[in-house]
Design a protein around this nucleic acid. Structure first.
Length: 803
DNA sequence: TAATTCGCTAGACCGA
DNA sequence: TCGGTCTAGCGAA
């Protein structure tokens, strides 16, 4: 359609391919000055590799027919790879021909293996042409308007057109069903833009409402508006599962064209792992719920609950009022309070919009790093991101990519046991003047230091078998040739440190502050995912013995460091995986710094021990049962009075606020003020409040995730019991639902007493439970270290002794 | 379709 | 009714 040769610039939004009768053709979607356009690349053909015994020729390959349609290889080319022999690159006209061939090629005489046959065509194009979605690219067009080349342009700060949408649906029964229940309203929010589409006349007086005749007209107006706005990104909150499939179904029922893809076709749900995702072509669908899951996976954020209200409150500091959906039917039909519903609908869109604004830079860095569309980048896992990066590196370094393992291999790999890290049993009690030291990027630096890689393990060189890369497991790694994994990981590590340093120097007011934060974090994500990927059963670069060797080295190095510290006169009080806690005693900070320096002269580069911080005071407690000090739970306070609480109930979502808050205040009184009497008073006060029935229910909620279908539980614990009761009342409980429950006064066992928060009246709580099973256990072992018993705590101070 | 192990704790379940 | 065992969930690294 587009005629005339020339160049076009634009932001790359998407890549896919289109099938014509004879060919599969790559298309790139660009945000150009005149809107979102797509361009076709007919010269790029689908391909994969075969490894042969050397007996095959190009001519022979071209004669073979595959599948029912007798698909043929378009062209075959001999290839030279460092890590494979007698390889051919075989091209096809269509992806369907490739698929037919890859099924049958193993039966061709002379073919030993197929490789890179499962890399999607459009992803292949982005990888091979070094194209980064969400970045500027330049395309060259020939006279017919076909694109002949595409190349990345210089990095630039991009502004995207982002609009967020949300729907409210009619739900006379328990849940809405797209087949019969209409959409009541649709909100759209963007920068300086707010609109709600509906069809209730009463809403007309709200300036942001656009009122149509009926649902059909509303849907038409909404689709029309999207076409007009032409966003680069459409944001939803759970649009993968709910909004988009629902809108699509309602459009179908009402006979409305839902052609919002940038190529004017209808979008559809696609599989993404176990779930379905909703992919748009060109314009990118960014599901903020998926984005939040992504941020959680990579520990950028840590939230208790993942509904939009909680996420908005936690990330934006804006608590949203929850609409009372119990009466939604009356509201809609009687129109009483319907304005509040419209406002609520709009606020949902706005909240999702703002969440995306805040974290989009990180997702965009992942797009660039992995040459992934925003749709893919925002839903990717750590393992998949590492794999993508290694595929890119293989292409750049002229290496052929290993295949994914068969299912039987995966099962076998899953059954392999691996010994993990070392955790030292702490010295319990209250300690003063503590230093925490740790190895920065421990796993990655061990991989690089000892050249750990699937191709370097137990190499044929005799010298390597007794050299510096012999792991405590007995396996050894080549000293002569740097492995694929360490080589590329070293590059990631270097970039991560560079960006991290740049970010540290940056000021919040700097223009590129957010960008630097995103960059260093994106590299951190990849860096930390490499080790897991080596031991991940579906990995293409799986190496269990590599993983075991790395872990054996972590145990070796941290124990050695602790030993050295003791030799130098420090008291080691704790350590976990990559860290050690030292009591300075009579030693000075300078002594400690010298010690760190000394260790760093001993350990090979790029391994490095760092001083994390000095702490004024710290406390370690005993296990609840068993006569040992508890690992992975402690509290520290630094010299600026910052508390660091680790592992305790305070950081866990499955404890009530009242227990957590009391624990925090107790820790504060003990560590900051060194005042256990005050701590005892705090506990006493809480017990009194509980007894008097004064405690508001939001302080009593315990959160827990339902991790499997309710029927599948062998043991009915409190959260399952509460969930089962709630389901009967019409609450939707799915795998992954996080329920908040309260222990009430009605029932015998704790499970019987558990009810979802929303069904509990203020004041209806089992005070005894909250005293004996929440508040006291949370503070008991802390106070025990200071010589206080539970009885002391109940009375608000130490009981006078008889003597 | 999916990174891992180590560790702690609660509360149900179950047999004596 | 008691205490041991098991299921379940979450956090540290």
């Amino acid at each position: 359609m587009r005629l005339g040769a020339g160049k076009i610039e634009g932001i790359l939004l998407d890549a896919d391919y289109k099938d014509t009768e004879n060919a599969s053709v790559i298309r790139l979607f660009l945000r150009t000055e005149s809107g979102i356009k797509h361009f076709e690349f007919p010269s790029f053909k689908p391909y994969f590799y075969i490894l042969t015994d050397g007996s095959l020729t190009e001519k022979k390959l071209l004669e073979i027919e595959f599948g029912e349609k007798a698909a043929k290889i378009l062209a075959a080319e001999r290839m030279e790879f460092e890590n494979a022999e007698n390889a051919f690159k075989i091209y096809f006209s269509k992806v369907s021909d490739l698929m037919a061939c890859r099924e049958e090629i193993k039966h061709v005489k002379g073919v030993l293996e197929k490789r890179e046959y499962d890399i999607p065509f459009s992803k292949r194009f982005l990888i091979n042409n070094a194209l980064q979605p969400m970045n500027m690219i330049e395309i060259e067009l020939d006279k017919e308007g076909n694109a002949t080349s595409a190349k990345a342009k210089e990095l630039q700060k991009s502004k995207f057109k982002i609009y967020s949408i949300d729907i409210e649906t009619y739900s006379p029964g328990k849940f809405s069903s797209a087949k019969k229940d209409p959409i009541m309203m649709i909100s759209v929010a963007g920068k300086d833009y707010s609109k709600v589409f509906s069809y209730k006349k009463k809403l007309a007086k709200l300036e942001f409402c656009k009122i149509m005749q009926n649902e059909k007209a509303m849907l038409e107006a909404f689709v029309q508006e999207l076409k007009l706005l032409e966003p680069d990104i459409i944001v939803t909150y759970n649009g993968d599962q709910f909004d988009f499939p629902y809108i699509k179904e309602r459009c179908k029922i009402n006979g409305v064209d839902f052609k919002i893809n940038s190529d004017k076709t209808e979008p559809s749900a696609s599989r993404k792992g176990m779930d379905t995702a909703f992919r748009l072509k060109g314009v990118q669908h960014l599901d903020a719920y998926q984005m939040v899951a992504f941020l959680t996976r990579f520990q950028v954020i840590n939230l208790i609950k993942y509904d939009l209200e909680s996420v908005s409150a936690a990330l934006l500091g804006k608590p949203k009022d929850k609409f009372d959906f119990k009466n939604i039917q009356e509201v809609w039909e009687g129109e009483k309070g319907i304005e509040a519903l419209a406002k609520y609908n709009l606020e949902d869109s706005q909240a999702a919009f703002e969440i995306v604004q805040k974290y989009l830079p990180l997702s965009i860095e992942v797009c660039r790093l992995g040459r992934l569309t925003l749709y893919d980048a925002s839903r990717i896992t750590g393992g998949m991101l590492v794999e993508q990066l290694l595929i890119i590196k293989s292409f750049e370094q002229n290496l052929i990519v290993p295949s994914k393992p068969h299912e039987s291999t995966v099962t076998e790999r899953m059954s392999q046991e691996v010994e993990g890290a070392f955790v030292r049993e702490p010295t319990h009690g209250l300690h003063e003047n503590i230093a925490v030291i740790d190895f920065r990027s421990f796993h990655p630096t061990i991989i690089i230091t000892h050249n750990v890689s699937p191709e370097t393990i137990d190499c044929e060189h005799k010298e390597c078998a007794s050299g510096k890369n012999v792991s405590p497991t007995g396996h050894y790694f080549c000293e002569k040739n740097q492995g694929f994994i360490p080589r590329n990981l070293a590059e990631v590590l270097k970039q991560r440190f560079a960006f991290k340093n740049e970010f540290k120097k940056a000021k919040k007011s700097d223009e590129n502050y957010d960008l630097l934060f995103a960059k260093q974090w994106a590299f951190k994500i990849v860096l930390n995912s490499f080790f897991g990927y080596l031991g991940y059963p579906r990995s293409r670069w799986y190496c269990r013995e590599c993983g075991n060797s790395i872990l054996a080295w972590t145990r070796h190095y941290i124990k050695q460091t602790m030993h050295r510290a003791e030799q130098d006169g420090f008291e080691v009080i704790y350590g976990d995986t990559d860290s050690a806690m030292l009591k300075l005693g009579k030693k000075t900070r300078e002594d400690l710094e010298k010690f760190v320096e000394k260790v760093n002269k001993e350990v090979p580069k790029p391994m490095e021990l760092e001083l994390e911080n000095f702490y004024k005071r710290g406390i370690f407690v005993m296990q609840k049962s068993g006569n040992k000090a508890a690992k992975k739970r402690y509290a520290l306070i630094d010299y600026k009075d910052n508390l660091k609480i680790v592992g305790f109930e305070y950081v866990r979502r499955d404890w009530s606020n009242i227990a957590k808050q009391t624990q925090k205040e107790v820790i504060e009184a003990v560590l900051k003020e060194g005042n256990p009497e005050k701590a005892a008073q705090i506990v006493k006060k809480r017990i009194t409040d509980l007894k008097e029935g004064k405690v508001p229910k939001k302080e009593l909620v315990v959160f827990s995730e339902i991790q499997k279908p309710l029927e599948k539980y062998d043991i009915i614990n409190p959260q399952v019991s509460a969930a089962l009761k709630a389901r009967k009342k019409g609450v939707k409980i799915e795998v992954g639902t996080i329920v908040g429950y309260i222990i009430t006064r009605s029932g015998k066992s704790i499970s019987e007493k558990a009810e979802l928060e929303e069904f509990v009246q203020e004041g209806n709580y089992d005070a005894d439970y909250y005293i004996m099973n929440q508040v006291l256990p949370a503070v008991e072992r802390i106070m025990q270290e200071l010589g206080y018993t539970v009885e002391d705590l109940k009375h608000g101070g130490k009981q006078t002794k008889l003597f």
